[in-house]
Amino acid sequence: MTTPRDLLIVTMDAEPSRLVERGDLSLALAGAELIDLLAAREAGLDGERVVPGPAGAPGDPLLHQAATSLVREEPYETVGDWLWRRGRGLSADYLSALEADGQLVRQRNRRWKVFWTRELALVDTDARRRAAHRLRSDEPVLAALTEAIGLREPDGEAPKVSDDAVARVLAALDDALAELAAERQRRDRRRDEAAVDNVRRGY
Score class of each variant (00 low, 15 high):
Arg152Pro: 06
Asp174Ile: 10
Ser69Lys: 10
Glu153Gly: 01
Arg18Ile: 04
Arg168Phe: 11
Gly44Asp: 11
Leu135Trp: 07
Gly89Glu: 00
Arg85His: 06
Asp174Phe: 12
Ala148Tyr: 09
Met12Pro: 00
Leu70His: 07
Val20Ile: 12
Asp101Trp: 06
Ala28Phe: 14
Arg111Gly: 00
Ala171Asn: 04
Val105Asp: 05
Asn198Thr: 11
Ala92Phe: 01
Asp175Asn: 13
Ala144Gly: 06
Glu157Asp: 06
Leu98Asp: 01
Gly59Trp: 03
Gly47Tyr: 10
Gln185Thr: 12
Tyr76Met: 02
Leu38Tyr: 04
Leu98Ser: 01
Ala43Val: 04
Glu48Lys: 15
Leu63Arg: 07
Arg111Val: 07
Val50Asn: 09
Glu77Ser: 07
Ala167Arg: 15
Ala143Cys: 01
Ala178Asp: 12
Thr146Trp: 07
Ala131Tyr: 06
Leu98Pro: 04
Pro52Thr: 00
Pro140Phe: 11
Ala43Met: 03
Asp24Arg: 15
Ala28Lys: 13
Leu104Phe: 10
Glu139Lys: 13
Asp60Cys: 12
Ala132His: 05
Ala131Glu: 00
Ser69Arg: 11
Ala131His: 05
Trp116Cys: 05
Thr117Lys: 12
Leu90Ser: 04
Arg5Ser: 13
Ala195Cys: 02
Asp6Ser: 15
Ile149Lys: 10
Pro140Ile: 04
Arg136His: 05
Lys160Pro: 02
Thr117Asp: 07
Ala178Ile: 05
Tyr76His: 10
Ala57Ser: 11
Arg186Phe: 03
Ser91Trp: 03
Ala67Pro: 03
Leu83Tyr: 09
Gly102Gln: 11
Glu99Phe: 15
Arg85Trp: 05
Leu177Ala: 08
Ala92Lys: 07
Met12His: 12
Val161Lys: 12
Arg191Thr: 02
Pro75Trp: 05
Asp46Glu: 09
Asp126Pro: 04
Ala132Met: 03
Asp164Val: 15
Ala172Met: 12
Thr78Glu: 03
His64Cys: 10
Leu177Arg: 11
Pro140Glu: 07
Gly47Ile: 09
Ser17His: 13
Gly23His: 11
Thr78Tyr: 10
Ala30Trp: 05
Gly56Pro: 11
Val79Phe: 12
Gly89Ile: 00
Val141Phe: 10
Val10Phe: 13
Pro75Ser: 08
Trp84Thr: 01
Ala158Met: 05
Asp164Leu: 15
Val166Asp: 10
Ala181Gly: 09
Glu157Val: 13
Gly80Met: 02
Tyr76Asn: 02
Arg184Tyr: 12
Arg128Lys: 10
Ala100Gln: 13
Gly47Val: 04
Ile149Thr: 03
Arg22Met: 03
Asp60Leu: 15
Trp116Asp: 09
Gly87Lys: 02
Ser17Asp: 08
Arg152Tyr: 08
